[in-house]
Design a protein around this nucleic acid. Structure first.
Lengths: 150, 150
DNA sequence: CGCTCAATTGAGACGACGTCTCAACACGCG
DNA sequence: CGCGTGTTGAGACGTCGTCTCAATTGAGCG
């Protein structure tokens, strides 16, 4: 994480921007979190630690983090966008249960190869991909089956 | 399309719902369109043909079409959700240019196999998937290169 | 054919989410 | 210290989708 922090600081320096307390607090919080979280959750978590930060600053800082390549922004599930810090060399994707909304992460080694091939065929330079499989998780499938019986 | 219309009518009948003029107009319009479109575009297209339909009805009908399995709803690109009628046996995915926002469809035969394997490993029953590759299209890559030169 | 009642609709209020504006503030530098 | 630019918070604003509710429609039935 120290390396990432240096990357963030370097990006800001290079753009003539400042590494303020708010930005640092948001950066650290997003790296403390294991999975994805939305802007509101991030705001709540940072405030929980005693920082006074506004919603606008959360979105502005997330935008900077995305630009610096440290954070990924995705639209997954029903609404809103989720943020998560980038895991170097290990991009994961999502299984979404359409009944309970649960999101499970998985790693798909085969996807990257397919991605490169598809992009070559269409003249695209891929930056990253986002695969989302929608379906029913174990629990919800069983529940649906039980209801169908009754 | 007659078959699909029958499927829609059958779904409605089965639920004790009615096949009204508004629903039929929306159904036909979404099948006239080749690719994806958003709710506003659909509303405009239907009004263009002389039907008076409200925004609420558009969303309500789209929901019915999704439930009946005829239409797919996806979040792709920056904001909003896109709708498109289902092409039987040929699910396509999307390349999104992060510079100009252009969306290109492609078919990925290998994805379905990977999908099934991943779901098996995680105890999911897949309903469908959504793969989105973000990057730069040919034109925008050239433009970016030209700007870097100048 | 007209009744009845549930389904459907349109208009607009509402809610979630993200962006923008602007005045006040902070920080680096001469 | 004072200047200038970057940053911030509060809240207004815009977009997109949902919800409410009164008016309307339409299918089934006598």
């Amino acid at each position: 994480m120290l390396q990432e922090r240096e990357q963030f600081a370097g990006y800001l320096r290079g753009q003539g921007l400042r590494l303020t307390g708010e930005r640092l607090a948001l950066f650290e919080e997003i790296y403390r979190q294991h999975g994805h979280l939305d802007a509101d959750a991030l705001l709540a978590a940072v405030r929980e630690r005693g920082h006074r930060v506004s919603r606008a600053t959360v979105y502005r800082t997330l935008d900077l983090l995305v630009r610096s390549g440290l954070v990924r922004k995705q639209r997954v599930g029903a609404r809103g966008q989720l943020f998560e810090h980038v895991h170097p060399g290990q991009q994961h994707d999502h299984l979404v249960c359409s009944a309970c909304g649960r999101v499970v992460e998985f790693v798909s080694p085969g996807i990257t190869a397919l991605q490169a091939e598809i992009c070559r065929a269409h003249g695209f330079s891929p930056a990253h991909h986002q695969l989302q499989i929608t379906g029913l998780c174990n629990a919800c499938r069983d529940e649906a089956a039980a209801q169908a019986h009754a």
